[in-house]
């Protein structure tokens, strides 16, 4: 139960920031990391971000972890013939000079088995593992339960 306390405390320190600065790791830049407030802890939360690749070679997002969730995975919503489905994605490509965007209705981080509710206005750390660029931790800003982007 220590990590959630740290996450809540981190919010206190960063509450004045409207938007986190993009985080650079190797040739990659991670920007606009945000999540929806969870409804309690028994339902999964969703988080989103954008990764830009300034390099000449592609990279792959191969892992995710966060102290707020013991089961953090990349999922993708697909809509086909009027039916929506959700599927686990093992790895996602960030093409050379391209970007990977996680957004509602597409790819998202599923934060399952939450240790603490994701409260609107708080932040929490999320660690992304890339095949080439290695691991990097970003602060995720929590918006309302129905937020559709980090600008709200």
């Amino acid at each position: 139960m220590k990590l959630p306390v740290i996450a809540v405390f981190a919010f206190g320190l960063s509450a004045g920031l409207a938007q986190a600065e993009p985080v650079r790791q190797g040739n990659l830049e991670i920007d606009a990391a945000w999540a929806r407030a969870s409804i309690g802890t028994s339902r999964p939360g969703a988080a989103y971000f954008t990764v830009r690749n300034f390099g000449d070679e592609g990279d792959r997002l191969i892992g995710l972890s966060s102290p707020v969730s013991t089961m953090t995975m990349l999922h993708e919503t697909t809509l086909s013939e009027g039916i929506s489905r959700m599927a686990h994605v093992e790895a996602a490509e960030i093409p050379a000079s391209g970007e990977l965007t996680l957004e509602p209705g597409g790819m998202h981080v599923m934060l399952m088995e939450l240790a603490t509710p994701l409260r609107e206005g708080a932040t929490f750390p999320l660690t992304l593992a890339f095949e080439a660029a290695g691991e990097v931790t970003v602060e995720v800003h929590v918006f309302g339960p129905g937020a559709t982007g980090p600008a709200e």
């Binding site: 929806r36 999964p44 509602p104």
Partner: peptide, 16 residues
Amino acid sequence: FTNCPDVCPTTLADVA
């Protein structure tokens, strides 16, 4: 369904 963190909140937020 309430375990749906991506699609369902988007639509319910629109309804709200």
